[in-house]
Amino acid sequence: MNITYFLTILVSGLKLGSIYAIVAIGYSIVYGILRLINFAHGDIMTIGVYLILVFMNTMGLPLFVCVLLSVALSVGVGLLIERLAYRPLRDATEETTLISSLAVSALLQNVLQIIFSAQRKPFLLPKSISTPMQVGMFKLSVINIATYVVTAVFLVLLYALLKKTKIGAAMRACSENMRAARLMGVNVNRVVMFAFFIGSAMAVVAGLLLAGEYKTVYPSLGFVPGLKAFCAAVVGGIGSLGGAVTGAFVIGVAEILFQGLMPTTMTAYRDAFVFLLMVAVLLLRPNGLFGKNEGGRS
């Protein structure tokens, strides 16, 4: 095996990891505050991609405008879900909200199927940004490079937001102890909505990168990547942002390395190995790589 091949697939793995990271952060922010595992998160991603497709195909708007419109609408859907399906259950157990989120996920997938049919649709970005160019020893397109840049920018912005701003402090407070935060005058509903706002917006961007990379969109597009991003958040230590990002890169890189380095007859089964790896990590570190060994929140 030559080193160029290894590095090329490693770069692909990092790209997939970056996309998982953006999704995993969305899971983690919401989980940190609400202790809610939001299964509908991956479906927000799918909705975002379909909306971009609709705006591109029917109105012929520039991609940038399509993405902004799609982010605005998808964030609206995210907030609506929070208001209708999660807020009434704020005091219920984790299991109840989990089931509610699964129900929302199934609902969204089926609505998408009714509107757009279950058939896959090609999702083609303008050639100018999707055609690969030679960058050093790798062939990368603008959208590939954007994947790395966007992930890095998101991480820096999010870090600054959490550490330097008032709403960030409120989010951290809610994540540590929601009741105490409320007593200190934090508007919890606003914090939760803000978390869904960020999560949904990032999910749409992740969806754009994923569909743009893999050229196709279908109603269950976001579900499996969403599931893997959730696993990434668990491997990293759910609730910890750094953990979510690390976990995402571990899962993404492992997925592509398994695909690239195993005998070709095994490549179709790479997901089994990815999940096996996840089990192994959790056996060694039950709270995930960066999970705090804390009890459930009082």
Binding site: Y5, T8, S12, L210, Q259, G260, T264, T265
Partner: peptide
Amino acid sequence: DHFKSGDYDFSAQIQR
């Protein structure tokens, strides 16, 4: 080479 329907990333197959 092999894949499974629904796999979205073919980068390793392409490189091989």
